[in-house]
Amino acid sequence: MHELIEGRWSARGYDATAEISVDDLTSVLDAGRWAPTWGRVQPVRFVVGRRADDTFAGLTETLTRGNAGWAPASAALILVCTAAEPDDEKARTYAAVDVGLAVSQMILQANSIGFNAHPMAGFDAEKAVRRFAIPEDRRPLVLLGLGAVAAPEQVASDIRERDERPRTRLPLDEVAFADTWGHPFTSSPHP
């Protein structure tokens, strides 16, 4: 596995004094912009705030309880939106897939330039719609925090404990199947 994927994790203990340059932030946005898109629709849009600007302040106001304790230490917050398409289930589904692809590429780009990225669902989407005048044909799906990981001694103990938990995933034989559902895919060569 590529080191950017293997080393990726979603920190919460960000250095509240670290800044991200406009160039670095633009490279993260460009990574999202260049993500694959279904039918060349390109439904993904971003609301971008850097710490201390009005957009960042507005985005922090949308955070819900779990994220409100750590995400304001991010160097930037990016609200990732997509098409709403209420009457077209297929378009709505693939618009969400496009967001996932964009966010994934943004996370890897952030990691490649020395930042950590943490995708969040813990925000008030309706409040974001009102605050940023997001049109009815768009829906916010992910709030992405970008930051520099703080030294452990600079982080509150509850956040440090969560950040120090081992990163785990289900074993491959529980998530990848062949022949029938539940029959594990194996990487061993066929006889």
Rank of each mutant, 00 (worst) to 15 (best):
D98A: 13
A96G: 12
G100A: 13
Q109F: 04
Q105D: 11
N111P: 01
S112T: 10
A117G: 14
L108D: 07
G100W: 13
G114N: 08
A95F: 01
A96L: 12
I107P: 00
H118E: 03
A95L: 07
A91H: 07
A96Q: 11
V103K: 02
D98T: 10
A95V: 08
A91E: 12
T93F: 15
N116F: 01
I107T: 10
Q109P: 02
A96I: 10
N111C: 11
L108M: 11
F115Y: 15
V103Y: 01
I107R: 02
A102N: 03
S104I: 02
Y94V: 04
D87V: 01
D87W: 02
K90N: 10
R92Q: 14
G114L: 08
G114Q: 07
V99H: 08
D87Y: 06
A91Q: 11
S112W: 09
M106R: 04
R92T: 08
K90C: 05
D98Y: 05
S104Q: 13
Q109S: 07
L108I: 09
I113L: 06
A91F: 07
S112A: 15
G100P: 14
T93N: 13
M120A: 14
N111L: 12
D98K: 04
V97N: 04
V97T: 11
A117W: 00
G114F: 05
M120F: 07
M120H: 03
M120Q: 15
A95Y: 02
N111Q: 15
F115D: 08
N111F: 12
A96Y: 09
S104M: 10
M120G: 01
M120K: 05
V103A: 06
G100Q: 12
V97Y: 09
N116Y: 02
A117T: 03
I113V: 13
V99K: 07
D98M: 10
K90A: 13
D98F: 06
L108N: 10
I113E: 03
G100D: 13
F115M: 09
L101H: 11
G100T: 13
P119H: 04
